[in-house]
Computed example of a mutant assay.
Amino acid sequence: MTAYLSIGDFSRATHLTVKTLRHYHQIGLLAPAEVDPHTGYRRYTTDQLSVAQVIRRFRDLDMPLEEIQAILSTPDLGLRNERIVAHLARLQEQLGRTQRAVDDLRNLLTHPAPDATGVELRAVPAVAAAAITDVIDAADGPIWMQGALGELHATLTAQGLAPSGQPGGIYADEVFTDARGESTIFVPCPGPVRPLGRVRPTVIPAAELAIITYRGESTAVDRAYATLATYVTHHALGVPGPIREYYPVGLRETPDTAMWRTEIGWPVFHTSTPPRKTDQLTAD
């Protein structure tokens, strides 16, 4: 004989609120075994307790309800496990991001921002380059940049062209102000590159820049930007124009992110001839 539980008893047994159980019923995730047509009272069987426990464990792992529903409705055990493993992998990645954020915050609290007196002033000449330009979300920037650099280098190699300078990027103000804007990744090259895929020939315009060098991956690059902005505000004449970055050491050179170097350039107007080289300020 089937044993039934009222929604209240089922709630107590599963630690799922009545409101939650009603919502799960509405979306088809956990329907009661019976609904009284006259009173609307929901009744559940004891066999449904284990299903409710599985749902609760998945929700404890922040799994979206749609994914839980897909898993529960899939009779293929292998496919179920694949979906569960995929979610666990996403959680692991999220934990990694959280740990990096904690480390960055601890570093921010225990290490004061570096002094900005060693920022380099540099006049950059115009150069011919192979480039990829797109409108991207700022959150996708690091991944998009790596993909674009890989495509650029592969295209140059296929066409027998060697890079003639450091790769870099040019970022419109909207990338920072609206979290979405036009971005260009480029690799200088001596000869005209033939358009292929997303790659196009271009000329990177000359610029006068205040430059700071940042070491490591991009998780704490905002500190370098803040230091550079402080320098420009107090010691230089900032002018309108896109932010420019150069990547002398990146994934292509080493998988060790601690060794990566990014040169961040803020457009300025030089009132005197900039020194050819000064001690570069590094922002770790």
Rank of each mutant, 00 (worst) to 15 (best):
I204G: 05
D178N: 11
A154T: 04
T157Q: 15
V232E: 02
V102G: 04
D256C: 04
Y225W: 14
L49T: 02
L109A: 05
D279K: 14
A148D: 00
H87G: 06
I243H: 12
A148H: 00
P167W: 01
G181Q: 04
A283N: 00
T110M: 15
Y246I: 15
A158Y: 14
F176G: 11
Q94T: 12
Q92T: 13
T157N: 10
I84K: 10
R12K: 14
R100E: 06
I264M: 14
V102E: 06
R57F: 11
R90G: 13
H235S: 07
G168Y: 00
A283Y: 00
A210N: 01
P32E: 05
Y247T: 09
L156C: 09
D60C: 09
P255I: 08
G241Q: 03
Q99W: 09
R90T: 05
R12T: 13
A226I: 06
D284G: 05
T45K: 01
Y246S: 12
A128G: 13
A139K: 15
T46A: 13
A258F: 03
P75M: 09
A148C: 01
E151K: 04
E93R: 14
R244C: 05
P114S: 09
T45L: 01
R42G: 05
A172M: 12
T219A: 14
V35H: 08
L251W: 05
R83I: 03
T17A: 14
V187T: 01
H153S: 12
T177M: 02
L65G: 05
Y225V: 13
Q146T: 10
V124A: 04
H235T: 12
F10I: 02
D104I: 07
S183Q: 11
V193Y: 05
E217R: 06
H25P: 03
E67C: 07
R97K: 13
E66D: 14
P205D: 03
I55K: 03
V175H: 08
G141E: 14
Q99V: 10
F10A: 00
V268G: 01
G160I: 07
T227P: 09
